[in-house]
Design a protein around this nucleic acid. Sequence first.
DNA 1: GGCCAGGAGGCCT
DNA 2: AGGCCTCATGGC
Length: 252
Amino acid sequence: MFNLEATLFCGQTFAWQKDGSTYRGVIGQRLVTLDVNEPCSAIVSDPFLRHYFDLEYPYEEAEAHLAALDPKLGELLSVHRSIHILNQDPWETTLSFITSQNNTIRRIRNLLDALRQTYGKEVAPDHHALPTPDELLRESSEDRLRALGFGYRAEYLLDAAGKSNLLATVSDLTDEEALHTLQRIHGVGPKVASCILLFAYGRKDVFPLDTWTGRILASFYPGKDPSFFSPYGGIAQQHLFYAERRKIDSHW
DNA sequence: GGCCAGGAGGCCT
DNA sequence: AGGCCTCATGGC
């Protein structure tokens, strides 16, 4: 089994919280509850969760490749074990990573929770889905989003909602074409587009380059660029990011 | 009070 | 194409 804790809290999703002996998250329109000690059977027996947790992808092969490529990654893989790249909903991923730009993880979570509480459907008592594009366009506005604390990103969320049809075309495109297409959304640049491709479309060779991963490359891999980790740049990036973040605080 | 946060748009050369 | 400035907001 993969490392569920790391998979949920390595920064690829902001939907989950750990309370007591359970992980809870609203994924799509559904509240998912997993027992911290016995999550496997619930995941394996559920087709939706099997796909969400990416059980069909051959991680052993990718991880063996990365461990052989570079000793630092080999060590991280032995510590983290397997971190899976989730197959998240493209729209939810777009909302999440537009919100993430120039922001802190704590505040990203708070803003997305506010978005759920304010506009999302209540799928279980006190648990709300993220708003759909239509819900956002119909019920919200730039002023209201600014009032929630989104600041200058308010306009970006509404533009993304209006262009959500773009997301349906991405699956047929190459990585390069998809990066270009996603950046037609205002507020989506190279980094956010990379996160959407990796975390929603399973493009395992896309390496989101941000302040953290840029620093990591500069200090541990001088002279190298993300193509060094190809064709598993996305997986490598996630282990590098998680390792670096864990030095700061283990619970965010 | 300046600087930074899982950046990106706009404008300048 | 590359280099600044600005964009809300909050924590340190």
